[in-house]
Nucleic acid binder design. Sequence first.
DNA 1: CAGGTGGAGCTCGTGAACGA
DNA 2: TCGTTCACGAGCTCCACCTG
Length: 465
Amino acid sequence: MPSFRKNASKQKTIDLMQQHFEEMDPETLEEDEKTIIISLHKVLTEHLCMFPLPEDRTDLKIKVDGDGAPVMPRVHHTCVAIKVIRYFEDMGISEEEWEGLNSPFTSHTLLLFDGKEDYEDIKEHTKRLRQELADIRRDGLQVDGRQYTVSVIAGGDLKWLNAVCALSTCSHTFPCPWCLVCQGELHLTGADLKYTRRTLALMSEHAHLPHDGMEYPWECECCEFTYDSPQALIDEEAPTTNAARLKFQLEHFGVGWHKENLWGLIPEDMVADLLHHDLREIHFILERTCKRFLITAALAEAYCEFLRQYVGCFVKVKKEGKKAGAKKTKQPNIIGRECEATLKVCEPLMVLIHGVDTENYHLAMKVWSAFKALRTEMFARLGKGHTMHTRAQKAYRIRRKAGEYISAKLTLGSVSEDGTQYSHIAYWHFPEMVMKHGDLVDLSTQALEHLHWLRKKDYRDLSNK
DNA sequence: CAGGTGGAGCTCGTGAACGA
DNA sequence: TCGTTCACGAGCTCCACCTG
């Protein structure tokens, strides 16, 4: 983040914003000086030069997040950022690493403009980004003589998703971006609900149905046909392309963001909102997924020695300064001595996450691959295999918990809260996402939220002095 | 009174049974 | 064979109680 801490009055907000934008080193600063565009190609190249993928991987997975936030009274920023997904699925991720994963520095801002996350605004400002995404998806990326194939996941909070899908707001009759569930059916679970999944073809079709705010006669930009009334619109044979409003959507998902990825969007804010609603039952979806395993003292010593060799001071066996009341669990080891034998699987990741320089990164990757081999060996010596639950098993559990939550709400006779989009999505679509993406931790949008927070803080600090 | 202790109730990973 | 489901037990947090 740029730092430009100096005294400024509130009236200087606009100046500050321009300065802020300039300091972000944009490729393009639009004429009005309220929009910056940074090249996706440049950002990805820089990232991969610094942190190349492991030798055996050439598939680059990036996530494009978007979100808007008020940064000052009457100043609303919308930001699009990318994040390179780092294949953490098989790794345990503790709270510290979680912080690191979602640090704002893991997200690279691509586009920032002064305006709300409005459909038309986004459409206007993301022209170049969408083109770049399409190019990079088609041609891949060449960095340091290595050819990468690129797949893109789109993400954002529910508002953002609905905006880029050209849908109405969350209070709309059909509020879910993934399916055609209507407001009255949001609380339904199990066999009670038979919903229709949204597809691009379906959305395209819907765009040609009469909807609010349409003025007649209406000329469709894509079909170049003038409709005199809503009925004429329905009677007309369904065109192959789409109306202007949905044209963007098709460009967006059909070209820039692949159709398949549309169903893999991770609206992280949805989770945050669920948590705010005291939905502790599904806390574990994204929080505290630290995986631990028990090993005996002899193996623990071997493990520590191994870590010391590679990472020296990064070895942390047990968190210090625990709150009073925490139980100190003793495990009998293979020679009969009691010891604290619980180790975090993910310690080497400390280097990976907190060490931002290339040297540490390579070291961490080396440590991690060696550690995986050691872990296998440990379990072999213990005479038991180490198998984790499959995605299907995790998905089942999430669905089950969400179902319990919904029925509990219904039992309490809650009316306003009994069927939110969030409960519907938690029950129906979260398990699907887990099936598709595995652990959702590294798909979080928290980094982007943090970027907003930092900008807000900067503006506030600067303009109040 | 501060800090330690231990139980209750929770989350969550994992083994295993079961059935299609 | 694979998905679904349950049981078990580990760690964690909270809180009441204990101790110096």
